[in-house]
C-alpha cells in the first residue's frame, strides 16, 4: 500500500498553487463574460422581434444540449481550419463563457418572468423606453431572487475548468497530470487538486453569500 508522501506533497505544492490561480482566473473570467452575455441572451430571447428571439432560442437550446468538451474541442481544433486561431486559454475561456451564458440566460429568464406584468404596464404608462425600463425597473427586481442560482453557476464553472486540460490549457488538473507522469505518483497531486477545489468552491460560495446579503434592500 502506497501511503501519502508528505514531503513530496509539500514539494509539488507551489506548482499546484500556481496552476490553481490559473483555474480561478479562468473560472472568474468565464463567469464574468457568461453573466453579461447571458443577460443579453435572456433579454433578446424575450424580444417580440422574431428575427432576434428565434435564433437566440435555437442557440441556447443547441449549446445546452451539447457537451462543453465538444464545444471547446470545436473552438480549439476546428476553428483554425476556418482561419480563426485561438490560443488554448482563449478557446477555453470563450468555450466556458458561451456554454454558461446559455445556462445563466435561463436563470435570468426565470427572474424576468417573475417580475409582475403590472410593472411593465407601469413603465409603459410612464412612457419609459425599454432599455431604461430594463435597467432601472425590471432588472433590479429580476436579479435579486436569481443571485443564488447565478452563484451556483460560478461554482459549476470552477468545477468544469479541468475539461480544458483536454485542449492543453495548463490549469490545476493539467499540472497535476504532468506531475503524475513525471514522478509516477498520482496520489498526492490528485488529492491536492481535490482539496484545492474544495477550498476554492467553499471560498466562492462564501463570497456569493456575502454579495446576496449586501443586495438585501434596506427596509
Amino acid at each position: 500500500m502506497n501511503f501519502f508522501d508528505w514531503p513530496f506533497a509539500l514539494e509539488i505544492l507551489p506548482r499546484l498553487l500556481d496552476a490553481s490561480l490559473a483555474t480561478l482566473g479562468i473560472a472568474l473570467a468565464g463567469f464574468a463574460i457568461a453573466v453579461v452575455l447571458g443577460l443579453f441572451l435572456a433579454i433578446g430571447r424575450r424580444s417580440r422581434q422574431r428575427w432576434l428571439s428565434w435564433p437566440i432560442t435555437g442557440l441556447i437550446e443547441f449549446i445546452r444540449s451539447t457537451p462543453l468538451l465538444i464545444q471547446v474541442y470545436f473552438l480549439f481544433y476546428v476553428l483554425p481550419n476556418y482561419g480563426l486561431q485561438l490560443s488554448a486559454l482563449q478557446a477555453g475561456i470563450i468555450g466556458i463563457a458561451l456554454h454558461y451564458a446559455c445556462y445563466t440566460a435561463e436563470v435570468y429568464r426565470a427572474g424576468l418572468d417573475a417580475v409582475p406584468r403590472a410593472q411593465w404596464e407601469a413603465v409603459t404608462a410612464l412612457n419609459m423606453r425599454p432599455w431604461t425600463a430594463y435597467r432601472d425597473v425590471i432588472l433590479p427586481q429580476a436579479l435579486r431572487p436569481v443571485l443564488p442560482a447565478l452563484g451556483n453557476y460560478l461554482i459549476s464553472i470552477l468545477k468544469d475548468t479541468p475539461v480544458l486540460s483536454a485542449i492543453t490549457v495548463v490549469e490545476i488538473m493539467q499540472r497535476a497530470k504532468n506531475i503524475g507522469s513525471e514522478s509516477f505518483r498520482y496520489l498526492e497531486p490528485i488529492t491536492l487538486v481535490g482539496l484545492f477545489f474544495l477550498i476554492l468552491s467553499l471560498g466562492l460560495a462564501w463570497c456569493v453569500r456575502r454579495l446576496e446579503n449586501r443586495m438585501e434592500p434596506a427596509r
Binding site: 403590472a118 410593472q119 407601469a122 404608462a125 432601472d136 425597473v137 427586481q141 434592500p217
Partner: peptide, 14 residues
Amino acid sequence: NVGMVFQSFNLFPH
C-alpha cells in the same frame, strides 16, 4: 399626453 393610475398601484418596490 396620457397618464394612468392603476387599481394595484404598481409602484416600483425597490
